[in-house]
């Protein structure tokens, strides 16, 4: 629909299920990995403390499970990404290979961070999420297609409708999710607001 190369209209791929509610960004990326001036390398540290035991051996965390390797869609639970505002959390998820997240709900700062790096977030009800978790656990090879325009997720012969934050969806479809260019416009209006507010000189 759009000529903008940054436009995101569909996401396709296999999924990785991550059941559980209120998964906070400290769990997604522990604070010690924030001691860096870049986001590079975060993909291997995602969920680090949940993926490894004290002796360094791997746990049965889905992000360790070979059968989900190469998944592009994360299926999370409720209030995913709560807590710290660290963009490192969606950056780590994205750098692991995830291109979209389906969940029951998302914490707001996390959601804003996802949009600003081009990760679509889709929401649906608890029962549908539980069904998707089961489906992928039993058949990790299922291919999903998220259609942002139609607000649907399709897999096998099924199509279910999903919700998206309208502003995020608009920005993703238009390719304006990287907000900087858009915000650099309106200079006169910015200056006007600046002048009418108290300053701190």
């Amino acid at each position: 629909m759009s000529a903008n190369p940054a436009a995101i209209t569909t996401i396709q791929g296999r999924a990785i299920p991550l059941p559980g509610n209120d998964i906070d960004t400290d769990r997604i990326i522990p604070a010690r990995y924030l001691r860096s001036v870049t986001f590079e390398g975060l993909g291997t540290e995602v969920f680090k403390d949940e993926r490894f035991n004290d002796d360094g051996s791997k746990t049965d965390h889905p992000f360790n499970d070979a059968k989900y390797e190469g998944a592009a869609i994360l299926i999370a639970g409720r209030n995913f990404g709560c807590g710290s505002s660290r963009e490192h959390a969606p950056q780590a998820i994205m750098r692991f290979g995830i291109k979209a997240i389906i969940g029951e709900s998302f914490a707001e700062i996390f959601a804003g961070n996802c949009t600003s790096i081009g990760i679509p977030l889709c929401t649906t009800d608890e029962a549908t999420i539980a069904g998707l978790h089961k489906l992928v656990q039993s058949d990790p090879q299922v291919e999903f297609t998220i259609d942002l325009e139609a607000k649907t997720v399709s897999y096998r012969d099924k199509t279910i409708s999903i919700d998206m934050n309208p502003a995020a969806r608009t920005a993703l479809l238009a390719g304006t999710w990287n907000t900087l260019d858009e915000l650099l416009q309106n200079e006169a209006a910015i200056e006007e607001v600046h002048r009418r507010l108290p300053s701190f000189v």
């Binding site: 963009e87 804003g112 600003s116 920005a171 907000t179 900087l180 915000l183 910015i190």
Partner: peptide, 21 residues
């Protein structure tokens, strides 16, 4: 007053504005 991510920190540094709902 609210928390933002690093991409938004960039936006505020460069434009003193945010895209927000």
């Amino acid at each position: 007053a609210f928390g933002i991510g690093t991409s938004q920190v960039r936006d505020v540094l460069a434009t003193q504005t945010l895209a927000f709902e």
